[in-house]
């Protein structure tokens, strides 16, 4: 095997192995269900789920629902970026405030915020704002925490370079501290968006409103199990694509390490 072939194998082998594992898992599930070990009234065989995919796409307005969910996620993303980064900068700037609240922000990151959805429904009503605000609250802490971490982690020598060029406090922030912190801040935004997507779909399911989450709820209530699992698989696919896109953007923003 020449060097180019070895390079191609080493590049594609992990992806191929991953896909093979998923295919193997579905084959095992198919066999287990067909053998009657798992009831097909609870878990439909993967071939039925695959067959239901077409129906879900053509009859359940999945494209419209997809854009609705993505729209809610993007709105959440804009809000966590604006308020999360601003909050992180504020906490970094005022140490007392940081010391007083950082633990609470970290605790909020670990809290099952989704359980508070009835409260949000009372405040915002059964509409997209409840979903967006739930996503926002769940996704905000990582952005705040990573912004603080990024700003605090700015190398002292870079700050000293700024000082040696007589930068004002505002120039020091915009020209040195913020660009230096950007990769860490973006990691926070990426984490936040993932939390946001989980919560957006979850709340759509719980309040039976909106995009993909509501579709899963609808199909489950109709006891259309192959359709339900097909919709769940679609959401997982969306999450994977979402995650990979964010990783690409992050790499693009971080020129060369």
């Amino acid at each position: 095997m020449n060097a180019a072939a070895r390079h191609a194998v080493s590049r594609f082998a992990p992806v191929a192995t991953g896909v093979a594992c998923v295919v193997l898992f579905f084959c095992v599930m198919e066999a287990v269900i067909r053998a009657g070990i798992l009831s097909e009234y609870i878990v439909p065989p993967p071939t039925q789920v695959l067959a239901a995919f077409g129906e879900v796409v053509t009859q359940e307005h999945i494209v419209r629902r997809f854009f609705l969910t993505i729209g809610e996620c993007l709105m959440t993303g804009v809000m966590i970026t604006v308020f999360g980064v601003a909050g992180g900068v504020l906490l970094h700037r005022y140490k007392l405030l940081q010391q007083a609240t950082e633990t609470w922000v970290a605790a909020l990151a670990a809290a099952p915020v989704v359980l508070a959805y009835p409260l949000f429904m009372v405040i915002f009503g059964r509409n997209a704002w409840t979903i967006i605000m739930m996503g926002f609250v769940a996704a905000l802490p990582p952005v705040i925490l990573k912004t603080i971490e990024g700003l605090a982690g700015t190398r002292k020598v870079l700050v000293n370079v700024g000082r040696s060029f007589n930068l004002s406090a505002s120039q020091q922030f915009w020209k040195i501290m913020l660009p230096a912190a950007l990769p860490t801040i973006f990691t926070g935004i990426r984490l936040g968006l993932i939390f946001g997507l989980i919560n957006v779909v979850g709340v759509e399911f719980l309040i039976n409103y909106g995009g993909l989450g509501q579709l899963i709820n609808d199909l489950a209530e109709r006891y259309d199990l192959p359709g339900t699992y097909a919709a769940i698989c679609f959401v997982i696919l969306v999450s994977v694509v979402f995650f990979m896109t964010l990783e690409k953007i992050e790499r693009w923003l971080r020129p060369v390490n």
Partner: peptide, 17 residues
């Protein structure tokens, strides 16, 4: 810091971005 004095530091100090 004074504009007449230009400093070169011991640590790597280029802006990576």
């Amino acid at each position: 810091p004074h504009k007449s004095i230009g400093m070169v530091f011991q640590e790597e100090s280029t802006f990576p971005w």
